[in-house]
Design a binder for these strands. Sequence first.
RNA 1: GGACCCGUAGUGUAGCCUGGUUUAACACGUCUCCCUGUCACGGAGAAGAUCGCCGGUUCGAAUCCGGUCGGGUCCGCCA
Length: 460
Amino acid sequence: MRTLVKETLEKIGQSVTLNGWVDSIRDHGKITFLDLRDRSGKIQCVGKDLPKVTTESVVEIVGTVAKRPEKLINPKLPTGSVEMQIEKVIVQSLSKELPFPVDTEGYEIDEELRLKYRYLDLRRPRLRRNIKVRSEYVQAAREYLFTQDFTEVETPLLTKSTPEGSRDFIVPSRLYPGKFFALPQSPQQYKQLLMTAGVERYFQLARCLRDEDPRADRGFEHTQIDLEMSFVTREEVMKLIENMTIYALNKIGAKIATVPFPIITYQKAIKKYHADKFDLRTESEKKAGILSFAWVIDFPFFEKNKEGNWTFTHNPFSQPRQEHEQWLLEKKNIDRILTSQYDLVCNGFEVGGGSIRSNRPEVLQTVFEIMGYQKDEIYRKFGHMLDAFTYGTPKHGGCAQGFERLLMAYLGEEYLREIQAFPQTGRGHTSIMDAPSELDEEQLKELGISVRQQPKAKTV
RNA sequence: GGACCCGUAGUGUAGCCUGGUUUAACACGUCUCCCUGUCACGGAGAAGAUCGCCGGUUCGAAUCCGGUCGGGUCCGCCA
């Protein structure tokens, strides 16, 4: 039976079997020290005449846990008061020399190389912690939402392209040649339809895919804690997300500057910070690693795009502020219509946003009319929503939290990629596997895609 | 689509501006040998780089110039 490294502290004098990676070897000739690492920690193992083994190899070590004499205790190691007296080392998987060190922070290493060998990069303590903290945050958020009677629902990945918002990732259809699925930019429409369905409180860890040029804090894929609630006010949704965030951050030991989160209007934010996302932290709070949140509300619903046409600032499905709904229906004072949208800001990042949605088909229809859509086009693209809203849909609202950015702030990371196990590179290549890649002619034929010389094809 | 920056042993850097004492240096890692108490062990030694690629200038290019490829950051874009 396997014993974890951290469990050795309670097994002094016992014979145990440890499994893990060789963290380091210190060979003194007649005596050799071998530090063994598993997911729970590191322990020093002592023996003589050990088999030939390299660092980062996987070994099984059978031996006896012994208390170290007072003067040999290593205070830097959690297991520093004990050591393993080796009876037998079985080399299970020998490692060759790694392409880069994994006992450093790793920032100094070329990121392309780190991503090519991400499975080794993830061995470094910093990334192990990032992955672990992420998992703990998500677990805590789930825990909280379940106490609030939410139901977790998965929505489709293969869905329909909608012309608004970000550029879609496209998947060709084999059964319907010449037609395409789109991967979701967010579960927006499905989660609203779940409100029509009567789920009332939905959440999901939603993967969102957007085909836009990557940045430090955004890539092709990111995950959001996405939720939607029926029969709620703006303030109720904001409070729920706020409480979930506080609960989950407490679980991972993060400190928050101000609770409840301050609320500021968009107009005041622009005037005061010249941006709709801003950093409220004092210098001492920055040093202490404290998270400082704020809500931004009362955004304008519409703005003019570069062609001079009206477009939405955040979300076309949003309900305007109640007092402006009549303006919207009459298509007047368009520039003064405010939306029920709320954005959550943390340490200068936008880490979430949502709104109360309109459940009136005529409001949604008018929004698209203001943006210059013809009636038949609206029905073709959003008819399913308008239709659904004629069958008894409660007023509803929701929020999506970009918790990866939140964890970036908490973990002091500058790049979203450091929070993701297998991120794309800054130029949109996948980790490890060289994707996007070319397809076999056979696959293309099956998809009804004509075979053309692909640009930058590396044919020799 | 645009702007800026970076490519030198396995990793990270120096050298480049001001071309020639360069046999391309240093640290870590790797390999060999020595070492019974180290824990970033220590000591001795060794291997490992045609300086991303192509071309130009020059008697001579890691170094200057042009192009190209790869990478990074930002702007555009990202409901």
